[in-house]
């Protein structure tokens, strides 16, 4: 592979690799900007980045290829996913444009920009590729190290400082100073008693054994769901599933079946039953 990548011209194998992976990379990039859900965008981007890592390797940048996988795909993209999860994984973006003319302008600019770049590349005479044979002769990592610690040592030190600054900055930005003393458990329970509601612990979510998921509200005796049983975060995201009607329908179906078995009574409408099954299967 070393000899292959170092060459000025690409071999047939590399060409096949380029066309196959290149297509996937473009599809991934398009997916990044077109997917409704941020998590899908992030996964598409991760795919693109892995492919780029392969391309780095193909171009003789072995160190960068590995770094790309470890740092970008491994660390940065995971950080993205983490934040996406934190912010709300299922909250889909509305792709409806709100700024008048923004989409047209963006498309026009993007198209023009792309055409200009391609035109510029086409005009430049980029036929001769020297290849990295000599540069990578002593090993790619050693070559990079020699450059980083000699020519680019100041830039290297400064990027180190930049990283530390960024870490400190992130902490400063996300850290929240507590302005008052946290209430103790005793004080909290005293307050609950004083306010006179929910003296016991909050009721658990889930209805019967079949539905004991955290996003399903517990049902009150009359069959209506109780918001209190679902965690506040899920409520805020609007991710509470309401199965109260379904439960009632199931109950009715159960009764009907019992009636059938007992051989009495007219039939109830059947429409609700398969729906209910399907929902359960999806679960």
């Amino acid at each position: 592979m070393s000899a292959l990548a170092a060459a000025g011209a690409a071999s047939t194998g590399e060409a096949v690799q380029f066309w196959v992976l290149g297509t996937i990379a473009v599809v991934g990039a398009l997916g990044t900007i077109l997917m409704k859900r941020a998590v899908h965008s992030a996964l598409s981007l991760a795919a693109t980045m892995i492919i780029l890592a392969v391309f780095y390797l193909a171009n003789g940048a072995y160190f960068l290829g590995v770094v790309q996988i470890i740092v970008y795909t491994g660390a940065i993209m995971m950080l993205f996913l983490f934040v996406v999860m934190l912010v709300g994984v299922t909250a889909a973006d509305s792709l409806k444009e709100t700024i008048k003319g923004q989409r047209w302008l963006a498309a026009a600019c993007g198209l023009g920009f792309g055409i200009l770049l391609v035109a510029g590349l086409g005009r430049a005479s980029l036929d001769t590729f020297e290849g990295l044979g000599t540069a990578n002769a002593g090993g790619n990592v050693e070559g990079l190290a020699a450059l980083i610690f000699t020519t680019y040592v100041f830039a290297f030190e400064i990027t180190g400082a930049l990283l530390i600054t960024a870490a400190v900055g992130a902490m400063v930005l996300t850290h929240r100073e507590r302005t008052e003393r946290a209430l103790t458990q005793r004080e909290l329970s005293e307050r609950r008693v004083r306010e006179g509601k929910h003296l016991p612990p909050l009721p658990a979510p889930g209805v019967y054994a079949r539905h004991n998921a955290v996003d399903i509200a517990g049902l009150l005796p009359d069959g209506t769901p109780s918001e209190l049983t679902v965690s506040r975060t899920l409520r805020a995201r609007g991710q509470v599933r309401d199965v109260s009607r379904q439960a009632l329908a199931d109950l009715r179906a159960l009764e009907q079946r019992a009636e059938e078995r007992l051989g009495r009574g007219p039939s109830e409408p059947q429409a609700s039953r398969p729906q209910g099954r399907k929902e359960e299967n999806a679960q």
Partner: peptide, 21 residues
């Protein structure tokens, strides 16, 4: 809207590249 400003920047860059070419 930051995106509108971004469009102007991007358009400006495109114009600069066009001019350079």
């Amino acid at each position: 809207f930051a995106r509108s400003y971004a469009v102007s920047m991007f358009g400006g860059t495109a114009v600069l590249i066009a001019a350079t070419l």
